[in-house]
Each structure stands twice: as structure tokens, then as C-alpha cells.
Amino acid sequence: MIPTQMLKGTLEGCILGILSQKETYGYEISSQLAAYGFGTIPEGTIYPLLLRLEKNGLVSAAYRPSELGPRRKYYSLTPAGEAELQQFMQNYAELSRAVGNLLSALKGDTDHE
């Protein structure tokens, strides 16, 4: 399981990524994250993040009827959210490269010993 602290900074970007595929709702986001290997992230963790993204104008929400309940809140990416996602992808690639470099250097050191 990925520690919550480590997940914190990236979860918002990942939600934007999932929403860029198609508009969807809280539980579906949680299931997709689980399918991508994020582990169990309850809807309750995602909802406050969605509120923040909505407040900052990165996603927009609309209520639609569903087959299970009387109504479901669907979220979709706004143009600002699209731009934020591009930024996240760049930042994350940079982080991933840096951590990767460090880890492979460590691995190289132990290999030579």
C-alpha cells in the first residue's frame, strides 16, 4: 500500500488524469484508482479533493440520475483543469526521473560492491 503522505501531492493530479478520459463520479474514480494499482482509496478521501478542484475551477460538476440512487454528481475537466493536468504530467515526469536517477545510482553502488 502506498503511504497516505506520499500519495497526497499526486492524488489531485491523478484524479485530473482520470477525468481527462471521460466525465465520471466519485465511486468510479475510486474504483479506477484501485484498478491502476493505487490500492483502496475510499470515496471519502476523493470527495474533499474534488471539492477543492471544483472550487479552483479545474473541474465542473453536474448532477445526473443514476441506476442505484436518485442522483449522482458527475465531474468533468475544465480547460483550466486540462492545463493543470499538463503541468502535473511535466512535474511528475521530472520527479520520477530524479527519483529514478537517485535509485539507480544507489543500485549501481551496491552492484559494484
Partner: peptide, 12 residues
């Protein structure tokens, strides 16, 4: 919103 969340979760 939380009501919707709980209601749907219950149904699942």
C-alpha cells in the same frame, strides 16, 4: 452529497 454517497454505497 454525503447522503448520495452513503445511499449509493448502501445499495452496493
Amino acid at each position: 452529497d454525503i447522503l448520495d454517497m452513503l445511499q449509493e454505497g448502501e445499495a452496493r
